[in-house]
Design a protein around this nucleic acid. Structure first.
Lengths: 232, 232
DNA sequence: CCTATAAGATTGTTGAACAATACTGCAATA
DNA sequence: TATTGCAGTATTGTTCAACAATCTTATAGG
């Protein structure tokens, strides 16, 4: 055993870049991105014929990609009818918030066991949101807000929680797209995010978790209300 | 609008029974069951050729099923190498418990808002475990224990939490299979399950959650230790 | 014992084909 | 007018055969 450990680990990390993903996975990645951006709006039908022709992949490969995204809840697969970009109901939004609440408040409660780089990520996300608000880039404020909540969940130091959280937030974007006015929705929370981040930084994990819990009460009702007035 | 509302709703609920699932989904269901039962042991390679011939489905359909199960973490898909039944590392077990802890303790804390049928399900699962122990059917005790924890998560009244929990527990079975001695592992928790159930029934949700939290501390270390001594 | 090479097996992806199902428009009927 | 029945058409579900790309194994050589 020589002192190879350091760069061997680095190369091991690059392995995933070496054998790129399969076509199906890359197709899924593209579609996922387009759905998140809102280019593929909720309710849009993705016919195998047109989507396959546009991406230049066979129907079989495309169907594999559809399976992946349907399992992530971003697409809905209706037998013999095709796949559609999911349309969230108000109940879905409630459900998403319910699950977020469990994961995030739970993770924050365990913030004491989290490493410093995780705490720094929380701080960083809050700062990014404030800078974006300064520049009046409201969509970016929304993105930073998501990063903040992702960072909160990451305090659990659990890859599976991270991944689940990613999927939840991706799904929530489906709700944000049917609403306009990102400013009114995201701006009020900048201040609260900062408070929560500082409580965590000060080691007051439980107090931070309680604040977050209260945040979910108001955010959920506000979003659901706004959501009902717009769509289904 | 006549008074059709009542039976129309009932028929709508039966819709899912009408169009059965696609072949890919049914294949996935079969494989999922076999993996959970342990017939397909962790590490087993599922070649497209042999699995397809055994189930009498085409390679393409089989690959769709593989995608679903890989996304559920029950299978691992290695590019150009094939799919394998997942082999959990000790880190995986830790991670699974970490996520379970968040979901279950969080759900229990919200038990006050849960309907009576959810509380009854908790009670029922505890009883089933006790009866199985009485009859010395230790594998069944394990199953009832899983049902108990599934019922705890269900207190959150969130379909997504339910589904996530289902997947977590299915994945955890992969760990249980490499160990023998289900009795020694599950028996000690029967009593604690009863205590937690009664605390919940008495409206002492937070106290129940704290007990559950303590349970995870011991259960996790015990399982991880047993797990390390057996496999990787 | 290690390395290189060649043969063989398996996966990744495509295209065509056909059956089964869903959708569309129009005629027929009450 | 509103509903029903019935083509015809379009789309999905599934299979099969083929080939390229990649991995694995066996063999030979150093």
């Amino acid at each position: 055993m020589t002192t190879t450990g350091t760069w061997v680990d680095q190369l091991a990390a690059d392995r995933s870049l070496l054998d790129r993903a399969s076509t199906a996975e890359r197709v899924a990645e593209v579609l996922r991105q387009r759905i998140i951006e809102g280019v593929l709006a909720p309710g849009t039908r993705l016919s195998e014929e047109s989507a396959g022709r546009a991406l230049a992949v066979s129907r079989n490969t495309l169907r594999e990609a559809f399976r992946l995204l349907a399992h992530e809840q971003l697409l809905v697969h209706e037998l013999h009818r095709g796949v559609f970009v999911r349309v969230l109901s108000a109940d879905d939004v409630v459900d998403l918030y319910r699950m977020r609440r469990l994961l995030e408040t739970g993770a924050v409660r365990h913030a004491a066991q989290a490493g410093p780089e995780l705490l720094a990520a929380v701080e960083e996300a809050v700062g990014a949101g404030e800078r974006a608000a300064e520049a009046e880039r409201w969509w970016e404020v929304g993105t930073a807000n998501m990063r903040f909540h992702q960072a909160l969940a990451a305090l659990a130091s659990s890859p599976r929680v991270d991944e689940t959280m990613r999927q939840l937030l991706a799904e929530l974007r489906l709700a944000f797209h049917v609403m306009s006015r990102p400013r009114e929705f995201h701006e009020p929370y900048l201040e609260l995010n900062r408070v929560i981040a500082e409580l965590i930084g000060a080691g007051k994990a439980h107090e931070a978790a309680d604040r977050l819990d209260a945040y979910f009460d108001t955010a959920e009702t506000q979003l659901v209300e706004a959501y009902r007035s717009y769509g289904s």
